[in-house]
Amino acid sequence: MVTSHTCELVDKDAINSLISNLPGDDAIVRVSNIFHALQSGPRLKIMYLLLEKEMCVCELEFALKMSQSAISHNLRTLRQLDLVRTKKKGRFVVYSVADEHVKMLLDLSRKHAMGCEL
């Protein structure tokens, strides 16, 4: 049985206003998927490398000492979430961080993890 308690700190109007400003369910799922994808060490390393330079799969393979198929699999996941973009450079496909929002997310996460003040 759930008992209803009254707490004088509850400002129902303020809380209802906060609730009305929450992202929709689709956005919550998308953000959750992004964080889930970025909990992978290899994917984060790929993202941090791409922050510094556009790279092709062969460059990432060399930098991370991973197989081409492992790199491609991780890049596919990052592309599906629109975290990386591609463009043709001659006969190669090069990858880059999708946009400034993704760059900011990665930079802020790194600063937070390293204990830097913002």
Rank of each mutant, 00 (worst) to 15 (best):
M1V: 05
S4H: 02
S4K: 08
H5P: 11
H5A: 13
E8H: 12
V10M: 10
K12P: 01
K12C: 04
I15W: 05
I15V: 13
I15L: 14
L18A: 14
S20R: 09
P23Y: 08
G24N: 14
D25V: 10
D26H: 02
V29W: 07
V29T: 13
V31L: 10
V31A: 11
S32F: 08
H36F: 13
A37C: 14
A37L: 08
L38E: 05
S40W: 04
S40Y: 06
L44E: 06
L44W: 05
L44S: 11
K45N: 13
I46R: 03
I46Q: 07
M47R: 04
M47H: 03
Y48S: 11
L49R: 07
L49I: 05
L50R: 04
L51W: 03
E54H: 04
E54W: 02
M55D: 06
V57C: 06
C58R: 11
E59P: 00
L60C: 03
Q68L: 08
Q68Y: 10
S69N: 12
S69G: 07
H73P: 00
N74E: 13
L78G: 06
L81T: 08
D82F: 09
V84G: 06
V84C: 12
K87S: 14
G90I: 03
Y95D: 04
S96Y: 09
S96T: 13
V97G: 01
A98T: 00
E100W: 05
E100N: 11
H101V: 01
K103P: 03
M104K: 13
L105V: 04
L105Y: 01
L106Y: 01
D107I: 01
L108M: 14
R110D: 14
H112F: 11
H112V: 09
H112N: 12
M114S: 13
G115P: 02
L118M: 15
